[in-house]
Amino acid sequence: MISIRNVSKSYGSFRVLADCSTEVARSEVVVVCGPSGSGKSTLIKCVNGLEPFQRGEIVVNGISVGDPKTDLPGLRSHVGMVFQNFELFPHMTITENLTIAQVEVLGRSREEATERGMGLLDRVGLKAHAGKHPGQLSGGQQQRVAIARALAMDPICMLFDEPTSALDPEMINEVLDVMVELAQEGMTMMVVTHEMGFARKVAHRVIFMDHGRIVEDAKKEDFFGTPRSERAQQFLSKILHH
């Protein structure tokens, strides 16, 4: 589904991604972790072309992301993305947030879009908030709406960029629960997160990045059992013992 081949990216002389390669198969859940500044967020943003990269190739569902001829908006409309800071549109109601891209991008009718949006809002347990603005919701609620907004586009895969990092601790689980459910339904997911509980529960593979490199790319059992690289061992012991 997602194929990342020898991708490199630099800002001037600073290398953010160095020769990164990995694959995400259909219905696979891959967790990407690593210290801050390791390039994990940049990598996931390259997958839907939000960040350009200079070398290598990324192919999503048979379409090359870096190809200048690719219809990027068309591709992105089928690749869901959830951001660290939710990025709901503050000047719109929750309903409008859920329907705007369905109507404007996919060309659905307002009724159809509203029906789809309300169904998903109900699914994330927020149907009662449809008429509110994002600012009236808690962080956890906003992130659940953001997930519903992405799902409303009927994505072929979902990208999560640190979806719980900006949340108060008591709100993390309500968001993770939605993500776990999604994973169990067979959604293809690439998730940048430090939530190792989530990784243990639903990930198939874990990728560990450091200094723009993919240092470890292993099955979940192997990663948590015996990580090969020393750097990954150190990282794991740090985040698991706190």
Binding site: K45, N48, L50, L72, P73, G74, L75, R76, S77, H78, V79, G80, M81, F83, N85, E87, L88, F89, I100, A101, E104, V105, L106, R149, A150, M153
Partner: peptide, 13 residues
């Protein structure tokens, strides 16, 4: 915020 533009683009706009 730049994130708003990223979110709009991510939705295919």
């Amino acid at each position: 915020p730049k994130g708003q533009i990223a979110a709009a683009h991510a939705l295919g706009m």
